[in-house]
């Protein structure tokens, strides 16, 4: 949460999130609402695209390649930020899951599911990019190193999180079950990070997120931080946009459930179809 609130994205103040009760909210909540509003999401997307473009140029063309590894080391500028955003995702999933279990408020569940989907994406990307990096440098696409294994466990736990959601017919129950998975699954994140310290493995120890100074040249560290910023912006965009679709889907579902069935009105498709089918022109509904 705090990470979203810290995003330096533009904040259309007079543009509160749609849910009512927007009056007396704290500044943080208002900023969050602005970021999750349509304009906020749009500008987050723009900021992410610009930052990612700049980061790609810097990582591929500007910063010098590592002397020992050569250009292969440039994979670091995508592998490490992907891993960072995966950690971030699961921290947010755990936080939001705990908040949902405590308060039962649906917006925490929306945040959790949005972050979990982003987390699965970034974890998968971390593993794939690590594999591409490992082949030329280590000499293997994959090995059962503790860091690799625990990261794969992380991916599977959060894939399970998403699968558990759809299991019960009652979405509230699905949200509660998955919140438990999201909370317990987070225990693997410190294990992943410290696996290189706790156990012998092939994966090298942390370079930046470790006690002491980063063991990396300044220019490379700067390029890495830029990449981390860019990935984080994209992450914020993906989470905010995903929360918006979840909110829309929930609203549609609610209205459908509350709408009295009338004779003479065409039956409406189930909410899943309404939300998932290809878009129809505005107003092309049953009896516009």
């Amino acid at each position: 949460m705090a990470t979203i609130a810290r995003r330096p994205a533009p904040q259309p103040r007079a543009h509160p999130a749609r849910p009512s009760g927007a009056r007396n909210r704290s500044r943080g909540a208002r900023l969050l609402g602005a970021l999750c509003g349509s304009r906020g999401i749009f500008w987050q997307g723009v900021a992410a695209a610009v930052a990612l473009g700049a980061s790609a140029v810097v990582s591929l063309l500007v910063v010098p390649a590592d002397a020992a590894q050569g250009d292969v080391q440039r994979l670091m500028y995508v592998h490490v930020p992907a891993a960072w955003t995966a950690y971030l995702s699961f921290a947010v999933v755990a936080f939001a899951s705990a908040a949902y279990l405590r308060t039962g408020r649906v917006h925490w569940d929306r945040l959790a599911v949005a972050a979990a989907e982003a987390g699965v994406l970034f974890t998968g990307l971390t593993i794939a990019l690590g594999s591409l990096w490992g082949r030329p440098i280590w000499g293997a696409w994959w090995t059962w190193d503790p860091r690799l294994t625990t990261t794969l466990v992380l991916l599977l736990v959060y894939a399970g999180y998403l699968a558990v959601r759809g299991l019960p017919d009652n979405p509230d129950r699905g949200a509660r079950w998955s919140a438990v998975v999201g909370l317990v699954g987070f225990l693997d994140v410190p294990v992943v990070h410290l696996s290189v310290v706790w156990w012998r493995g092939l994966h090298q120890p942390a370079t930046v997120l470790r006690p002491g100074t980063p063991t990396m040249a300044g220019s490379m560290l700067a390029a890495l931080l830029l990449a981390v910023l860019a990935f984080t912006l994209l992450w914020a965009y993906l989470v905010a946009a995903r929360m918006r679709t979840e909110r829309a889907a929930q609203r549609t579902r609610r209205e459908l459930l509350s709408a009295p069935v009338r004779r003479g009105v065409q039956p409406v498709a189930p909410v899943a179809d309404l939300v998932a089918t290809a878009p129809t022109p505005q107003g092309a509904g049953s009896h516009g």
Partner: peptide, 26 residues
């Protein structure tokens, strides 16, 4: 049957030395 390289203690500085001293020298 498999030889894997572990670039453990060297944290990928721009020049190949594992320690700061040798890095500076390089």
């Amino acid at each position: 049957d498999t030889v894997l390289v572990k670039h453990g203690s060297d944290y990928r500085p721009p020049t190949e030395a594992p320690s700061v001293g040798t890095r500076r020298a390089a």
